[in-house]
Design a protein around this nucleic acid. Structure first.
Lengths: 157, 157
DNA sequence: GCCTAAAATTTCAAGGTTGAAATATTTTGC
DNA sequence: GCAAAATATTTCAACCTTGAAATTTTAGGC
């Protein structure tokens, strides 16, 4: 992909975008680190496990491994390992869909669903705490900007 | 830490913060994934190596391992491994500071400095491209909000 | 001058992550 | 029907990451 005209014409804008990216990344890392620590301490689990359970919770009938990896923006091989461990823990089960023996549908067990519900409740409070300095209005504005940015970019690729 | 009054009083604000966090995380992941791919393809390196070199580039006299890990928001043991590999590649050297044989100062070699300069140039263009949909003004506003949020939060902990 | 505490780093096990190769299965073209 | 292409997933090596334990060295208290 070539640089857009604006990319070449406005170096000041690009410096500003670079600064934005650095701050966005640092903010994400601070929050992620804190969440990781709390998930470990309070629920003896990890952020990737939480993410997978979160995705499955919204789809009680289950998700294909490939849907899971696409939704979570991680590789196929990665999901395999995380789901394996969740199965070992008894939070997820695998099944086949239709007569297709290639596919594997993962879904939460009763225990997994109950566990996730408890984690989600805590998670929401933690985020409220960690982003407490962001006013409701700022949160809304930031959120809209980020949504626009990401969907624009993804549609091109 | 107890939840702030606002945390309890405004559930709508908390939902908005949760939405913000999810979008922030996804945006960061999309950009990070793209950067990782390009660093691999164009420079045969990784994002963590880039981060370490970036930090060292700004401090030509070098940095302590502990300063490096604090600055990059990663663990001590993590930095050890990444620096090890950069040393193997000839991009970084270690030295001792003063007479203190506990400390280890890492700094870029000539080759490391030259390599980072080339990567930084490409990196800035990539960010301009990936965040191209964000106007200069939006970038500035977002950036200010993120800075305020992170520094407020960090000061308390 | 010792002994203990503190400080800086490394080591290590467990898990997360990617990208590529391998495996297994289904679909398609003929 | 069958060979080849396409699809879904797993496996694997290399690297990243954490948090805790171990190591090495220095600083402080006495």
């Amino acid at each position: 992909m070539d640089a857009s005209p604006e990319t070449l014409e406005k170096p000041a804008a690009n410096k500003e975008r670079l600064r934005l990216w650095i701050r966005l990344l640092r903010a994400a890392r601070v929050v992620e680190g804190e969440l990781r620590e709390r998930l470990k301490r309070e629920f003896d689990t990890t952020l990737p496990r939480f993410d997978v359970m979160s995705a499955l919770y919204r789809q009680p009938e289950g998700m294909l491994m490939s849907d899971l990896s696409r939704f979570l923006l991680v590789s196929n091989g990665n999901v395999t390992g995380i789901v394996d461990r969740l199965v070992t823990d008894g939070f997820v089960v695998r099944a086949n869909r239709d007569g297709d023996r290639r596919t594997s549908i993962a879904r939460l067990t009763e225990a997994g669903s109950a566990r996730f519900a408890a984690m989600a409740e805590a998670h929401e409070i933690w985020i409220a705490e960690l982003l407490g300095e962001v006013s409701e209005e700022d949160a809304r504005r930031l959120s809209v900007m980020l949504k626009a940015f990401r969907s624009n970019w993804e549609n091109e690729h």
